[in-house]
Design a protein around this nucleic acid. Structure first.
Length: 468
DNA sequence: TTTTGAGTTGTTCGA
DNA sequence: GTCGAACAACTCAAA
Protein backbone atom coordinates (compact mmCIF):
# COMPACT_ATOMS: atom_id res chain seq x y z
CA UNK A 1 0.00 0.00 0.00
CA UNK A 2 1.23 3.49 -0.84
CA UNK A 3 2.08 5.75 2.04
CA UNK A 4 -0.42 8.36 3.06
CA UNK A 5 0.28 11.75 4.62
CA UNK A 6 -2.25 13.26 6.97
CA UNK A 7 -2.55 17.02 7.47
CA UNK A 8 -4.42 18.06 10.59
CA UNK A 9 -5.70 21.61 10.06
CA UNK A 10 -6.85 23.72 12.98
CA UNK A 11 -6.68 27.50 12.72
CA UNK A 12 -4.96 27.46 9.35
CA UNK A 13 -7.76 26.92 6.85
CA UNK A 14 -5.79 27.87 3.74
CA UNK A 15 -3.77 26.31 0.98
CA UNK A 16 -1.16 29.01 0.51
CA UNK A 17 1.56 29.54 3.10
CA UNK A 18 0.57 26.35 4.80
CA UNK A 19 3.77 24.50 5.72
CA UNK A 20 2.00 21.41 7.00
CA UNK A 21 0.06 21.01 3.79
CA UNK A 22 3.14 21.69 1.69
CA UNK A 23 5.14 19.12 3.61
CA UNK A 24 2.50 16.49 3.02
CA UNK A 25 2.05 17.15 -0.67
CA UNK A 26 5.81 17.01 -1.22
CA UNK A 27 5.84 13.41 -0.09
CA UNK A 28 5.25 10.43 -2.31
CA UNK A 29 1.71 9.12 -2.02
CA UNK A 30 -1.69 10.36 -1.03
CA UNK A 31 -2.51 13.41 1.11
CA UNK A 32 -5.55 13.53 3.36
CA UNK A 33 -6.58 16.75 5.05
CA UNK A 34 -8.44 16.48 8.33
CA UNK A 35 -10.32 18.99 10.42
CA UNK A 36 -11.54 17.96 13.86
CA UNK A 37 -14.38 19.62 15.70
CA UNK A 38 -12.51 18.98 18.93
CA UNK A 39 -13.88 17.92 22.26
CA UNK A 40 -10.45 17.78 23.90
CA UNK A 41 -10.07 19.21 27.38
CA UNK A 42 -8.07 22.43 27.28
CA UNK A 43 -9.08 23.39 23.76
CA UNK A 44 -11.54 26.25 23.79
CA UNK A 45 -14.44 25.47 21.47
CA UNK A 46 -15.37 28.31 19.11
CA UNK A 47 -18.22 30.58 20.12
CA UNK A 48 -21.53 30.51 18.27
CA UNK A 49 -20.68 33.22 15.74
CA UNK A 50 -17.22 31.84 15.12
CA UNK A 51 -18.77 28.45 14.59
CA UNK A 52 -20.88 29.89 11.81
CA UNK A 53 -17.75 31.31 10.20
CA UNK A 54 -15.92 28.04 10.67
CA UNK A 55 -18.65 26.07 8.93
CA UNK A 56 -18.50 28.34 5.89
CA UNK A 57 -14.73 28.39 5.91
CA UNK A 58 -14.61 24.59 5.92
CA UNK A 59 -16.92 24.50 2.94
CA UNK A 60 -14.72 26.94 1.06
CA UNK A 61 -11.68 24.91 1.98
CA UNK A 62 -13.31 21.71 0.83
CA UNK A 63 -13.90 23.20 -2.59
CA UNK A 64 -10.35 24.52 -2.77
CA UNK A 65 -8.89 21.14 -1.79
CA UNK A 66 -11.14 19.35 -4.26
CA UNK A 67 -9.63 21.56 -6.94
CA UNK A 68 -6.25 20.13 -6.00
CA UNK A 69 -7.57 16.59 -5.82
CA UNK A 70 -6.93 16.33 -2.10
CA UNK A 71 -9.31 14.47 0.16
CA UNK A 72 -10.81 16.38 3.02
CA UNK A 73 -12.55 15.00 6.08
CA UNK A 74 -14.24 16.71 9.00
CA UNK A 75 -14.67 14.70 12.19
CA UNK A 76 -16.07 15.40 15.60
CA UNK A 77 -14.58 14.15 18.85
CA UNK A 78 -11.35 13.52 20.67
CA UNK A 79 -8.43 14.29 18.35
CA UNK A 80 -6.17 11.63 19.87
CA UNK A 81 -8.71 8.91 19.09
CA UNK A 82 -9.62 10.23 15.68
CA UNK A 83 -6.05 10.54 14.53
CA UNK A 84 -5.15 7.09 15.86
CA UNK A 85 -8.12 5.69 13.99
CA UNK A 86 -7.24 7.41 10.76
CA UNK A 87 -3.63 6.36 11.00
CA UNK A 88 -4.77 2.75 11.29
CA UNK A 89 -7.55 2.85 8.68
CA UNK A 90 -5.76 4.86 6.02
CA UNK A 91 -2.24 3.48 6.41
CA UNK A 92 -0.95 6.91 7.35
CA UNK A 93 2.80 7.11 7.61
CA UNK A 94 3.21 10.80 8.38
CA UNK A 95 1.15 13.44 10.19
CA UNK A 96 1.72 17.18 9.85
CA UNK A 97 0.22 20.22 11.49
CA UNK A 98 0.91 23.89 12.14
CA UNK A 99 1.49 24.88 15.73
CA UNK A 100 -0.91 26.44 18.16
CA UNK A 101 0.08 28.18 21.33
CA UNK A 102 -2.36 27.87 24.23
CA UNK A 103 -1.16 25.61 27.04
CA UNK A 104 -4.10 23.21 26.68
CA UNK A 105 -3.67 23.03 22.93
CA UNK A 106 0.02 22.33 23.24
CA UNK A 107 -0.65 19.57 25.74
CA UNK A 108 -3.09 17.89 23.36
CA UNK A 109 -0.68 18.19 20.46
CA UNK A 110 2.31 16.97 22.45
CA UNK A 111 0.46 13.87 23.61
CA UNK A 112 -0.63 13.04 20.09
CA UNK A 113 2.86 13.59 18.76
CA UNK A 114 4.32 11.28 21.39
CA UNK A 115 1.79 8.58 20.57
CA UNK A 116 2.48 8.87 16.84
CA UNK A 117 6.22 8.69 17.33
CA UNK A 118 5.91 5.62 19.50
CA UNK A 119 3.90 3.89 16.81
CA UNK A 120 6.49 4.75 14.20
CA UNK A 121 4.59 7.49 12.40
CA UNK A 122 6.57 10.47 11.17
CA UNK A 123 5.29 13.75 12.57
CA UNK A 124 6.31 17.32 12.07
CA UNK A 125 4.81 20.59 13.23
CA UNK A 126 5.46 24.03 11.76
CA UNK A 127 5.27 27.69 12.65
CA UNK A 128 2.65 29.25 10.41
CA UNK A 129 0.24 31.34 12.39
CA UNK A 130 2.39 34.02 13.99
CA UNK A 131 5.09 36.25 12.53
CA UNK A 132 7.71 35.09 15.01
CA UNK A 133 7.54 32.03 17.23
CA UNK A 134 7.13 33.05 20.88
CA UNK A 135 10.39 31.39 21.90
CA UNK A 136 12.31 33.18 19.15
CA UNK A 137 12.00 36.68 20.55
CA UNK A 138 13.09 37.89 23.97
CA UNK A 139 14.47 40.89 25.79
CA UNK A 140 18.17 41.35 26.49
CA UNK A 141 17.56 39.54 29.77
CA UNK A 142 16.12 36.63 27.81
CA UNK A 143 12.63 37.23 29.13
CA UNK A 144 9.43 37.53 27.13
CA UNK A 145 8.56 41.12 26.31
CA UNK A 146 5.88 42.65 28.43
CA UNK A 147 5.93 46.10 26.86
CA UNK A 148 4.70 46.45 23.33
CA UNK A 149 6.96 49.15 21.92
CA UNK A 150 10.30 47.38 22.43
CA UNK A 151 8.64 44.16 21.26
CA UNK A 152 7.57 45.91 18.08
CA UNK A 153 10.99 47.47 17.52
CA UNK A 154 12.64 44.09 17.84
CA UNK A 155 10.06 42.35 15.68
CA UNK A 156 10.53 44.88 12.91
CA UNK A 157 14.23 44.06 12.70
CA UNK A 158 13.49 40.38 12.22
CA UNK A 159 13.39 38.75 8.84
CA UNK A 160 9.85 37.42 8.54
CA UNK A 161 9.73 34.12 6.66
CA UNK A 162 8.49 34.37 3.09
CA UNK A 163 5.07 32.79 2.60
CA UNK A 164 4.92 29.45 0.81
CA UNK A 165 3.03 29.06 -2.45
CA UNK A 166 -0.05 26.91 -2.81
CA UNK A 167 0.95 23.30 -3.16
CA UNK A 168 0.69 21.51 -6.48
CA UNK A 169 -2.13 19.13 -7.28
CA UNK A 170 -2.35 15.90 -5.37
CA UNK A 171 -2.72 12.55 -6.99
CA UNK A 172 -6.04 11.17 -5.87
CA UNK A 173 -9.55 12.31 -5.42
CA UNK A 174 -12.32 10.79 -3.35
CA UNK A 175 -15.68 12.15 -2.33
CA UNK A 176 -15.06 14.58 0.48
CA UNK A 177 -16.99 14.40 3.71
CA UNK A 178 -18.63 17.63 4.69
CA UNK A 179 -19.16 18.93 8.17
CA UNK A 180 -22.47 17.30 9.06
CA UNK A 181 -22.26 18.05 12.78
CA UNK A 182 -22.90 21.70 12.22
CA UNK A 183 -26.25 23.14 13.22
CA UNK A 184 -27.19 26.45 11.71
CA UNK A 185 -27.64 28.98 14.51
CA UNK A 186 -30.67 31.23 14.47
CA UNK A 187 -28.59 34.23 13.52
CA UNK A 188 -26.78 32.56 10.61
CA UNK A 189 -28.90 34.34 8.07
CA UNK A 190 -28.08 37.79 9.30
CA UNK A 191 -24.39 36.98 9.73
CA UNK A 192 -24.21 35.71 6.18
CA UNK A 193 -25.39 39.09 4.95
CA UNK A 194 -22.25 40.73 6.28
CA UNK A 195 -19.36 38.51 5.28
CA UNK A 196 -17.52 36.66 2.58
CA UNK A 197 -15.76 33.67 4.10
CA UNK A 198 -12.76 31.68 2.93
CA UNK A 199 -9.22 31.98 1.64
CA UNK A 200 -10.16 33.65 -1.63
CA UNK A 201 -12.23 36.24 0.21
CA UNK A 202 -9.37 36.85 2.63
CA UNK A 203 -6.97 37.56 -0.21
CA UNK A 204 -9.45 39.88 -1.89
CA UNK A 205 -9.99 41.72 1.38
CA UNK A 206 -6.26 42.21 1.84
CA UNK A 207 -5.76 43.38 -1.73
CA UNK A 208 -8.66 45.80 -1.50
CA UNK A 209 -7.38 47.16 1.78
CA UNK A 210 -3.86 47.69 0.49
CA UNK A 211 -5.07 49.18 -2.79
CA UNK A 212 -7.76 51.51 -1.53
CA UNK A 213 -7.98 51.89 2.20
CA UNK A 214 -4.63 51.61 3.93
CA UNK A 215 -3.78 55.28 3.28
CA UNK A 216 -6.66 56.31 5.49
CA UNK A 217 -5.93 53.69 8.11
CA UNK A 218 -3.91 55.65 10.71
CA UNK A 219 -6.50 58.45 10.87
CA UNK A 220 -9.65 56.62 9.91
CA UNK A 221 -9.31 53.50 12.01
CA UNK A 222 -10.73 55.24 15.07
CA UNK A 223 -13.97 56.28 13.44
CA UNK A 224 -16.57 53.52 13.60
CA UNK A 225 -18.55 54.73 10.60
CA UNK A 226 -15.45 54.79 8.36
CA UNK A 227 -14.48 51.64 6.55
CA UNK A 228 -10.85 52.29 7.29
CA UNK A 229 -9.96 49.08 9.07
CA UNK A 230 -8.70 46.06 7.21
CA UNK A 231 -11.58 43.69 7.96
CA UNK A 232 -9.07 40.86 8.12
CA UNK A 233 -9.57 39.76 11.72
CA UNK A 234 -11.95 36.82 11.15
CA UNK A 235 -9.82 35.64 8.23
CA UNK A 236 -6.79 35.71 10.50
CA UNK A 237 -8.74 34.03 13.28
CA UNK A 238 -9.24 30.94 11.14
CA UNK A 239 -6.00 31.22 9.25
CA UNK A 240 -7.63 31.83 5.90
CA UNK A 241 -4.70 34.15 5.47
CA UNK A 242 -1.44 34.10 7.39
CA UNK A 243 0.19 37.02 9.16
CA UNK A 244 3.29 36.40 7.06
CA UNK A 245 1.29 36.79 3.85
CA UNK A 246 -0.10 40.05 5.16
CA UNK A 247 3.32 41.20 6.28
CA UNK A 248 4.96 40.61 2.93
CA UNK A 249 2.09 41.89 0.82
CA UNK A 250 1.98 45.09 2.84
CA UNK A 251 5.74 45.50 2.83
CA UNK A 252 5.76 45.12 -0.93
CA UNK A 253 3.19 47.88 -1.27
CA UNK A 254 5.24 50.10 1.03
CA UNK A 255 8.25 49.56 -1.21
CA UNK A 256 6.39 50.31 -4.42
CA UNK A 257 4.49 53.25 -2.98
CA UNK A 258 6.63 55.06 -0.41
CA UNK A 259 3.86 57.53 0.30
CA UNK A 260 1.93 54.65 1.86
CA UNK A 261 4.83 53.47 3.99
CA UNK A 262 3.88 55.30 7.16
CA UNK A 263 0.30 54.06 7.03
CA UNK A 264 1.49 50.52 6.37
CA UNK A 265 3.88 50.71 9.29
CA UNK A 266 0.96 51.61 11.54
CA UNK A 267 -1.12 48.77 10.13
CA UNK A 268 1.70 46.27 10.61
CA UNK A 269 2.17 47.42 14.19
CA UNK A 270 -1.43 46.38 14.79
CA UNK A 271 -0.66 43.04 13.21
CA UNK A 272 2.25 42.85 15.65
CA UNK A 273 -0.22 43.30 18.51
CA UNK A 274 -1.72 40.02 17.40
CA UNK A 275 1.69 38.38 17.73
CA UNK A 276 2.17 40.11 21.09
CA UNK A 277 -1.09 38.53 22.27
CA UNK A 278 -0.04 35.10 21.03
CA UNK A 279 3.26 35.44 22.81
CA UNK A 280 1.35 36.23 26.02
CA UNK A 281 -0.81 33.19 25.43
CA UNK A 282 2.29 31.07 25.11
CA UNK A 283 4.31 32.46 27.99
CA UNK A 284 1.61 33.12 30.58
CA UNK A 285 -0.78 30.77 32.26
CA UNK A 286 -4.39 30.76 31.09
CA UNK A 287 -4.85 34.38 30.05
CA UNK A 288 -8.62 33.95 29.68
CA UNK A 289 -8.86 33.16 33.41
CA UNK A 290 -5.91 34.62 35.29
CA UNK A 291 -5.14 38.34 35.42
CA UNK A 292 -1.63 38.91 34.13
CA UNK A 293 -1.02 41.50 36.82
CA UNK A 294 -1.36 39.54 40.01
CA UNK A 295 -2.81 42.35 42.10
CA UNK A 296 -6.00 42.21 40.04
CA UNK A 297 -6.72 38.81 41.53
CA UNK A 298 -8.02 40.62 44.61
CA UNK A 299 -10.26 43.04 42.71
CA UNK A 300 -13.77 43.02 44.13
CA UNK A 301 -15.88 43.01 41.00
CA UNK A 302 -19.55 43.90 41.24
CA UNK A 303 -22.13 41.20 40.73
CA UNK A 304 -25.06 42.52 38.75
CA UNK A 305 -26.98 40.26 36.45
CA UNK A 306 -29.20 43.17 35.43
CA UNK A 307 -26.33 45.42 34.42
CA UNK A 308 -24.63 42.62 32.56
CA UNK A 309 -27.84 41.78 30.71
CA UNK A 310 -28.39 45.43 29.77
CA UNK A 311 -24.83 45.64 28.48
CA UNK A 312 -25.14 42.45 26.44
CA UNK A 313 -28.41 43.43 24.85
CA UNK A 314 -27.46 47.02 24.01
CA UNK A 315 -29.89 48.57 26.49
CA UNK A 316 -27.57 50.56 28.74
CA UNK A 317 -29.05 53.90 27.80
CA UNK A 318 -25.62 55.03 26.58
CA UNK A 319 -26.00 55.36 22.81
CA UNK A 320 -22.54 54.51 21.52
CA UNK A 321 -22.30 51.56 23.91
CA UNK A 322 -25.66 50.24 22.81
CA UNK A 323 -24.75 50.79 19.17
CA UNK A 324 -21.62 48.69 19.60
CA UNK A 325 -23.33 45.87 21.43
CA UNK A 326 -26.08 45.72 18.83
CA UNK A 327 -23.57 45.80 16.00
CA UNK A 328 -21.89 42.83 17.63
CA UNK A 329 -25.11 40.90 17.89
CA UNK A 330 -26.17 41.66 14.34
CA UNK A 331 -22.88 41.24 12.51
CA UNK A 332 -20.52 39.21 14.66
CA UNK A 333 -18.07 42.06 14.84
CA UNK A 334 -17.62 45.46 16.45
CA UNK A 335 -15.42 48.36 15.47
CA UNK A 336 -12.19 48.41 17.44
CA UNK A 337 -12.73 51.84 18.97
CA UNK A 338 -16.16 50.80 20.19
CA UNK A 339 -14.80 47.52 21.59
CA UNK A 340 -12.61 49.61 23.86
CA UNK A 341 -15.55 51.77 24.88
CA UNK A 342 -17.89 48.91 25.75
CA UNK A 343 -15.12 47.05 27.56
CA UNK A 344 -14.19 50.14 29.55
CA UNK A 345 -17.82 50.68 30.49
CA UNK A 346 -18.23 47.10 31.66
CA UNK A 347 -14.98 46.75 33.58
CA UNK A 348 -14.67 50.29 34.94
CA UNK A 349 -18.00 52.10 35.13
CA UNK A 350 -19.97 48.96 35.88
CA UNK A 351 -17.02 47.33 37.66
CA UNK A 352 -18.00 43.93 36.28
CA UNK A 353 -15.38 41.21 35.88
CA UNK A 354 -13.64 41.38 32.49
CA UNK A 355 -13.98 37.62 32.14
CA UNK A 356 -17.73 37.98 31.71
CA UNK A 357 -17.23 40.46 28.91
CA UNK A 358 -14.55 38.32 27.37
CA UNK A 359 -16.89 35.33 27.32
CA UNK A 360 -19.68 37.33 25.69
CA UNK A 361 -17.31 38.56 23.01
CA UNK A 362 -16.06 35.01 22.52
CA UNK A 363 -19.59 33.84 21.95
CA UNK A 364 -20.63 36.67 19.61
CA UNK A 365 -17.53 37.57 17.60
CA UNK A 366 -16.73 35.91 14.32
CA UNK A 367 -13.11 36.88 15.02
CA UNK A 368 -13.10 35.71 18.66
CA UNK A 369 -9.48 34.73 19.00
CA UNK A 370 -7.94 32.59 21.69
CA UNK A 371 -5.09 35.09 22.17
CA UNK A 372 -6.33 38.51 21.08
CA UNK A 373 -9.68 38.38 22.85
CA UNK A 374 -8.48 37.71 26.41
CA UNK A 375 -5.30 39.77 26.02
CA UNK A 376 -7.28 42.76 24.81
CA UNK A 377 -9.89 42.46 27.54
CA UNK A 378 -7.16 42.38 30.13
CA UNK A 379 -5.56 45.37 28.47
CA UNK A 380 -8.72 47.44 28.84
CA UNK A 381 -9.47 46.16 32.33
CA UNK A 382 -6.00 47.17 33.46
CA UNK A 383 -4.76 43.70 34.38
CA UNK A 384 -3.03 43.03 31.06
CA UNK A 385 0.46 43.69 29.77
CA UNK A 386 1.26 47.28 28.87
CA UNK A 387 -2.29 47.96 29.98
CA UNK A 388 -4.23 51.14 30.07
CA UNK A 389 -3.41 53.05 33.28
CA UNK A 390 -6.18 52.71 35.79
CA UNK A 391 -7.22 56.34 35.40
CA UNK A 392 -7.91 55.90 31.71
CA UNK A 393 -11.65 55.49 31.77
CA UNK A 394 -13.47 56.24 28.57
CA UNK A 395 -16.44 58.55 28.72
CA UNK A 396 -18.97 57.29 26.15
CA UNK A 397 -20.42 60.76 25.67
CA UNK A 398 -17.05 62.40 25.05
CA UNK A 399 -15.89 59.54 22.86
CA UNK A 400 -19.15 59.61 20.93
CA UNK A 401 -18.72 63.29 20.27
CA UNK A 402 -15.14 62.79 19.17
CA UNK A 403 -15.41 59.68 17.03
CA UNK A 404 -19.04 59.70 15.91
CA UNK A 405 -19.61 63.43 15.82
CA UNK A 406 -22.23 63.27 13.08
CA UNK A 407 -23.88 60.32 14.73
CA UNK A 408 -24.09 58.04 11.72
CA UNK A 409 -22.85 55.05 13.71
CA UNK A 410 -25.31 55.53 16.56
CA UNK A 411 -28.19 56.29 14.19
CA UNK A 412 -27.50 53.10 12.27
CA UNK A 413 -27.60 50.81 15.30
CA UNK A 414 -29.88 52.74 17.65
CA UNK A 415 -32.57 53.87 15.24
CA UNK A 416 -34.95 54.91 18.01
CA UNK A 417 -32.64 57.90 18.57
CA UNK A 418 -32.13 58.70 14.89
CA UNK A 419 -34.23 61.87 14.92
CA UNK A 420 -32.27 63.48 17.74
CA UNK A 421 -29.95 66.32 16.71
CA UNK A 422 -26.22 65.58 16.86
CA UNK A 423 -25.82 67.71 19.95
CA UNK A 424 -27.94 65.38 22.07
CA UNK A 425 -27.42 62.09 20.31
CA UNK A 426 -24.77 60.80 22.69
CA UNK A 427 -26.45 62.04 25.88
CA UNK A 428 -30.17 61.96 25.22
CA UNK A 429 -31.05 61.87 28.91
CA UNK A 430 -29.73 65.42 29.22
CA UNK A 431 -31.64 66.77 26.25
CA UNK A 432 -34.37 69.37 26.82
CA UNK A 433 -37.88 67.98 26.91
CA UNK A 434 -38.94 69.71 23.69
CA UNK A 435 -35.95 68.26 21.81
CA UNK A 436 -36.83 64.78 23.00
CA UNK A 437 -40.50 65.04 22.14
CA UNK A 438 -39.71 66.51 18.71
CA UNK A 439 -37.52 63.46 18.07
CA UNK A 440 -40.14 61.07 19.39
CA UNK A 441 -37.88 59.95 22.23
CA UNK A 442 -39.18 59.22 25.72
CA UNK A 443 -36.35 58.34 28.08
CA UNK A 444 -37.32 55.25 30.03
CA UNK A 445 -39.91 54.27 27.42
CA UNK A 446 -38.60 54.41 23.86
CA UNK A 447 -35.00 54.31 25.03
CA UNK A 448 -33.59 53.44 28.49
CA UNK A 449 -32.26 55.92 30.98
CA UNK A 450 -28.53 55.34 31.55
CA UNK A 451 -28.00 52.37 33.83
CA UNK A 452 -25.01 54.04 35.44
CA UNK A 453 -24.01 57.55 36.43
CA UNK A 454 -20.83 58.19 34.45
CA UNK A 455 -19.27 60.60 36.88
CA UNK A 456 -19.97 58.69 40.08
CA UNK A 457 -19.00 55.36 38.55
CA UNK A 458 -15.77 56.83 37.28
CA UNK A 459 -14.85 57.87 40.80
CA UNK A 460 -15.82 54.45 42.09
CA UNK A 461 -13.60 52.76 39.50
CA UNK A 462 -10.66 54.99 40.38
CA UNK A 463 -11.06 54.11 44.04
CA UNK A 464 -11.39 50.39 43.36
CA UNK A 465 -8.20 50.42 41.31
CA UNK A 466 -6.33 52.54 43.84
CA UNK A 467 -7.30 50.05 46.55
CA UNK A 468 -5.29 47.39 44.74
C1' DT B 1 24.80 46.55 38.83
C1' DT B 2 22.84 50.85 38.42
C1' DT B 3 20.71 54.32 36.04
C1' DT B 4 17.64 56.31 32.95
C1' DG B 5 13.97 57.14 29.85
C1' DA B 6 9.78 55.56 28.57
C1' DG B 7 5.25 53.42 28.43
C1' DT B 8 -1.44 52.13 22.05
C1' DT B 9 -6.00 54.37 21.99
C1' DG B 10 -8.21 59.39 28.35
C1' DT B 11 -10.72 62.70 31.32
C1' DT B 12 -11.20 66.47 34.20
C1' DC B 13 -10.19 70.67 36.20
C1' DG B 14 -8.68 75.12 36.50
C1' DA B 15 -6.19 78.91 34.57
C1' DG C 1 -12.64 77.69 23.86
C1' DT C 2 -8.09 76.13 24.61
C1' DC C 3 -4.28 74.36 27.05
C1' DG C 4 -1.37 72.15 30.48
C1' DA C 5 -1.25 69.61 34.52
C1' DA C 6 -2.79 66.05 37.46
C1' DC C 7 -4.29 61.59 37.87
C1' DA C 8 0.48 57.21 40.70
C1' DA C 9 3.65 54.96 40.84
C1' DC C 10 5.76 51.11 38.73
C1' DT C 11 8.03 48.24 35.79
C1' DC C 12 10.36 47.42 31.89
C1' DA C 13 14.24 47.40 28.64
C1' DA C 14 18.41 48.92 27.37
C1' DA C 15 22.58 51.52 28.08
Amino acid sequence: MKSTSLVWLRNDLRLADNPALSAATRREGRTIVLYIDETAIGVRPPGAAARWWLHNSLQALEADLAGLGIDFTVRHGDPALIIAEMVADEAVSAVFWNRRYAAGERAVDAAIKAALISSGVTTESFGANVLVEPWDIATGQDKPYSVFTPFWKTLKQRPIAQPLPRPDAGISRQANQVDDHYKEPAWAEKLSGHWYVGEAAARRTLADFLDHRVDAYPEGRDFPDCEATSGLSPHLRFGEISPRQIWHAASMVAQMAPEKAAAIDKFLSELAWRDFSYHQLYHRCDIAREPMQAKYATMSWRQSADDLAAWKSGQTGLPIIDAGMRELWETGTMHNRVRMLVASLLTKNLLIDWRLGEQWFWECLVDGDVASNPASWQWVAGSGLDAAPYFRIFNPVTQGGRFDAEGSYVRLWVPELAALPDKWLHNPWEAPAEVLSAAGVKIGETYPAPIVDLKASRTRALEAAAAL
